[in-house]
Amino acid sequence: MFYTDGKLQFPVRVETPDPLFARALQQAIGGVEGEIRVAMQYFFQACGARGNPKFRDMLLNTATEEFGHIEMLATAVALNLEGAPLSVKEDISADSVGGSVLNGINMKNLLSSGLSAMPVDSDGVPFDMSHIYASGNIAADMTANIAAESTGRVLAVRLYNMTNDPGMKEMLSFLIARDTMHQNQWMAALEELGGATGAFPIPNSFPQDQEQQEFSYAWLGFMADGSVPAPGRWSDGKSIDGKGNFQPQQATPLGQKPVLGPAKPMSGAQKEQINP
């Protein structure tokens, strides 16, 4: 169950409404790096979490917080849109708010939501849930969550640098801090699951003696001249999971050229394909 007391997690205030910045904030709501993405990702990961129930509890608590962040950002969008005109005319283009309507505001916020936030990105594209990763493998999910919080924090920092409004900077500073916590929390969960040497390779339940181990830690180069790619930590020395050694080698084709059978009659193919 979810509960609310009607209050925001952190104060949201806008000193100078900026409809163009409202459009930018929409990315933090409905963009691929946004709060809808992480809220639903953590929620569905929790719904499928098996094993120790504390991981489900952690995921549900964090998903609930992310719903609160959507509420904060939606409030910020609405406050930044306050004062925007309801009619779009050329003679308002000189006005700071009206000019923003003509020069870049997300028109959906004007036409479809009455100057309110929507579950869309900064271009007005609805969030379609295609970036929700909930694999049923707790270590894989924690790894995906680190990436989600990392890209979310990058976005929040960019938004912070886009505005001079003290209230917006204060709100974004809070969201950046929470992204810091969440990145660390998911890394801590991975550490508790065994860290690099225990959790990886994911899934650690698959016996590695059943994989073709000569390729397990090979850094393959596909350079046209046959050279080995530039060396790095990933090409030499002990593997990060501690179960092998990185080795650079030039990739060579090991398979044959594909030979397919003739096309089936009534398949819409040419007759030469059916009777080659």
Rank of each mutant, 00 (worst) to 15 (best):
P276N: 04
S122Q: 13
D5A: 10
M107P: 08
M168L: 15
F67N: 01
Y3T: 13
G198M: 09
I240R: 00
F21A: 07
L73F: 01
F21M: 11
I176H: 02
S267K: 07
S100H: 01
N161D: 10
G48R: 14
F215G: 08
M187K: 01
I202E: 03
N137C: 01
A49G: 05
M107H: 13
N204D: 09
K238E: 08
N137F: 01
L20S: 07
E170F: 07
N80K: 07
P119L: 06
P229L: 05
P166S: 02
A63K: 01
D141W: 00
E214F: 09
A24E: 13
F55Y: 15
M40D: 05
L172T: 10
N184T: 04
E191M: 12
L73Q: 02
T64C: 03
S96F: 03
R37G: 01
S173R: 10
A134D: 06
G167M: 06
Q250P: 03
A78M: 09
M72I: 11
F215S: 09
G31E: 12
A156L: 11
V88F: 04
A199Y: 11
I146V: 15
I70F: 04
Y42S: 06
F215E: 05
P11F: 15
V120N: 08
N275S: 08
F10Q: 12
L115Q: 06
I70S: 00
R153D: 00
G261M: 09
K108G: 15
S87K: 10
S100V: 00
S130P: 11
D128P: 02
G195P: 01
F10Y: 15
K169R: 15
F43L: 15
Y160H: 11
F67H: 04
P126A: 13
Q273T: 09
K7Q: 15
M168K: 02
G152D: 01
G167K: 04
G124N: 06
P119Q: 08
S205L: 11
K238L: 14
L220R: 04
A230H: 10
A28G: 14
P262T: 08
R37C: 02
F44Y: 14
Y217G: 06
P229A: 10
P276A: 08
I105R: 12
F206V: 12
Q45M: 09
G99H: 03
P248I: 08
E192L: 07
G98T: 01
K89M: 08
P248Q: 06
Q185V: 11
P265I: 13
I105N: 05
G232P: 00
V259D: 09
I240L: 13
H131I: 09
E82R: 10
D121A: 14
R13W: 11
S150F: 11
N109H: 12
K7S: 15
E170N: 14
G30N: 05
S96C: 01
L20C: 03
Q270Y: 14
Q9M: 15
T4R: 12
N204Q: 09
M168Y: 00
D179V: 00
V97M: 00
Q247L: 10
V77S: 04
N184Y: 04
T4K: 13
A218W: 14
I274V: 14
P207V: 06
L59V: 00
P126V: 14
S267M: 07
A39V: 05
I138L: 08
M129R: 08
G68M: 03
G30E: 04
F200G: 00
T151M: 12
S113M: 02
F10L: 11
P119C: 07
R50V: 15
G48W: 13
Q183V: 08
